[in-house]
Design a protein around this nucleic acid. Structure first.
Lengths: 213, 213
DNA sequence: TCTGTAGAGTGAACAACGTTTACTAATATA
DNA sequence: TATATTAGTAAACGTTGTTCACTCTACAGA
């Protein structure tokens, strides 16, 4: 009985099938097209049957949200060692923004109101999606690659970075649909400009010891 | 006939009354509580009657959105002359964030998907809510109070500033409900840190000639 | 192998939503 | 005053998420 009973396996398979259909609707027709009836018809179930697999629509969306985070993190390219620090940061930003650009529906879903949101600053700082960035910044500061003004911490710089990337992605997805690359280009330049002000100008490479965000 | 006919005046009064009720629901019960039926009952109308005054729910929300922008801009305190530039910028940021904190429902409404959103970068740059910030930054750079690195423009700095303020406000409203001031304090420090890197350290005052954002 | 029970699956309904339609009643205009 | 406009309504339409009472199937224990 090391493998689950066949009933349980079928159950799990159906569950994944429902999630796959929901994912397909999200990517092809958009977030607002995900309705229980629409979804049920796509998997040849009655709407009520979905409630045998999920407690409700919100649980299905929550699963897709986790998928989105995983997809974004696994699409991170392996950065070649010896890359200048500002290039590393720039690529991190670009990767995040590219994800939002390529999968706007995924990004909209991730940013849509959920019940799973941290309620305070401490929880946010320990969010697995944000913590690596803080760690990365701290290492960079500790190594001397980034110089932080007196009275401030690596957290401040990480926050700024996160703010910028988050704002650019959101704006691109929600407002700048019909725009050329002008917005993204200019925005990334803005990030670059600010980062350059803190990065100690050494062409010497910097490589984080932790896994990158 | 210089004043509108009494029928038209009553019509306009009813319209404003409906908007007032919608505003009350927004502030007291939240954005998701605004429904045509809920609103109709509050103003002692049948739901269908609202369609004699508005083309639909979206038009009502659009009116509230404009209210929100107006309210935010009129709540801007008159800055005393002779204020250091970084203090001016900091207060501008604080004013924006304070508005989102005081009226989270208004802010959520403003940021909710609308049909009136600019579709490209050029329109965005001419948005009356963003243009003053660019103007302000340009004046500050022209006067020498802010130094921009070579190859960059005041627009880059304005974008960064807008990104930060926007991101902080959104995070405060959507995620950081139960948190103390730690998040806002740290975030404002982050803005301050970055701004300080560009502001030429002169205690000499700077006063914009244009109206402030 | 037979049987009883847990559970997969369903049709119908409920409550709420935005909106439309056909209609009445009140008002403004001529 | 007669007429045309328009404010206002009840009822319905087509959605939505969710629940309930009910089958029928598949698996477990005798």
């Amino acid at each position: 009985m090391q493998t689950p009973a066949p009933g349980k396996r079928r159950y799990e398979k159906n569950r994944q099938q429902i999630l796959a259909a929901a994912r397909a609707i999200l990517l092809e027709e958009g977030l607002q097209a995900i309705s229980m009836r629409n979804l049920a018809e796509k998997v040849d179930y009655s709407p009520a049957a979905l409630y045998k697999y999920f407690s409700g629509k919100e649980e299905i969306l929550e699963n897709l949200r986790q998928e989105a985070w995983a997809l974004m993190h696994e699409s991170e390219p392996g950065l070649p060692p010896g890359l200048p620090l500002q290039e590393v940061l720039l690529r991190m930003a670009r990767n995040y923004i590219d994800f939002a650009t390529r999968y706007p529906q995924y990004y909209l879903l991730v940013m849509s109101p959920s019940d799973n949101i941290p309620g305070n600053f401490e929880e946010f700082l320990q969010d697995p999606n944000f913590m690596p960035l803080i760690q990365f910044t701290e290492e960079a500061v500790a190594s001397g690659a980034i110089r932080i003004p007196q009275g401030y911490t690596p957290l401040h710089l990480a926050l700024f970075f996160w703010f910028s990337v988050h704002a650019i992605s959101t704006l691109k997805v929600t407002m700048m649909n019909n725009c050329q690359d002008a917005f993204e280009t200019t925005s990334l330049e803005a990030i670059q400009m600010v980062m350059a002000a803190f990065i100690k100008e050494t062409p010497a490479s910097f490589q984080s010891k932790g896994k990158r965000p």
